[in-house]
Design a binder for these strands. Sequence first.
DNA 1: TGAACAAGCGGAACGCTGTCCCGTTTGACG
DNA 2: CGTCAAACGGGACAGCGTTCCGCTTGTTCA
Lengths: 192, 192
Amino acid sequence: MNDEDRPAAKPKRADARRNEESLLDAAAAVFVASGVEAPVRDIAAAAGVGTATIYRHFPTRADLIIAVYRHQVEACAEAGPALLADGPSPYAALGRWIDLFVDFLVTKHGLAAVLRSDNAGFDALHAYFLDRLVPVCTRLLDAAAEAGEIRADVEALELMRGVGNLCIGADRDPHYDARRLVALLVAGLRRA
Amino acid sequence: MNDEDRPAAKPKRADARRNEESLLDAAAAVFVASGVEAPVRDIAAAAGVGTATIYRHFPTRADLIIAVYRHQVEACAEAGPALLADGPSPYAALGRWIDLFVDFLVTKHGLAAVLRSDNAGFDALHAYFLDRLVPVCTRLLDAAAEAGEIRADVEALELMRGVGNLCIGADRDPHYDARRLVALLVAGLRRA
DNA sequence: TGAACAAGCGGAACGCTGTCCCGTTTGACG
DNA sequence: CGTCAAACGGGACAGCGTTCCGCTTGTTCA
């Protein structure tokens, strides 16, 4: 949880630490303004550093994106079990949780697009999202399947990729309602 | 239908006509090999022409893509009414037609990705696909809705965008089965 | 047939991108 | 306060789409 004061994973120089933080702040701001695919130079300029400094701290863009959104992904992951415990039914909990996931994706300019499955060069981002969220989704899915509310032959990874893909372009185009389509997909899970 | 011998829409020079055809052949080959986002220079090289020649014939990449796939899109559009006439039920026809559409998208490297709704600069491609296929889908959807097989509050455009998005990355990743997910989405249309 | 003209051409040039490199600065520590 | 490696900045490079310009070539008309 606490990123700032963990016990000296790497004894970095003070200026390096400061720059990393500036970079995270600047990246967050630029991502909001211009999307997660904003030019590296823009982020560097916003942070008041050179372009190389970005690559020094975050070797790939995926690393930077992960660092910026880590907290929110954690929050989403932790919401899963909570919803399952509180909700009226596993299926309802699944629906709610997926809504959270969709909300997260559509409010981050272009995040869903870089998360898509055919995207080489973002392996780390892909892996992080999947490692963190697929187990949560699996648990919800299993619970709903055991309760007999949905069919049992759909994997969490499969579902999440579908949801992620449906969220692509949900920002930008106000006529495209990703939530509705995701709801349709989730409705398709129901037992016949 | 006949593109070659329509009554002199533009009395072009013979070499221009030849180049346009080379370009179409070359583009088709390169699209298969490297996807629809292959570098312009590659396509030009494959056709044995300069880069400017591409832009002269096809001002935007979307125009080139449309020209290459026009026949197949037409075939897909024409299959709609046929399926509706032959099929056991409107819902079955809808499912079959969407399968055709999905097959078309996933077999064209990266086509689904450029068709996505947030993609600026491909307006012509977007418009062509939608103009040609949305009416067909609408008819299938309406028929199924009237037969009481599916809910009536889903628009063709909405559905097709969802299907298109689900097909993104279906090539490249053998673990991602767009067909299954699309089937799930279509299953979600059923009346409750 | 052949000369004149414009349609059409190829590739160099430009701007923008991500990425890498290298000479310089600066924080940390003895 | 001197030393030195960690860290830095921005320029250099390569790959892309797009545009421009001087040259080539098909066509036409006498």
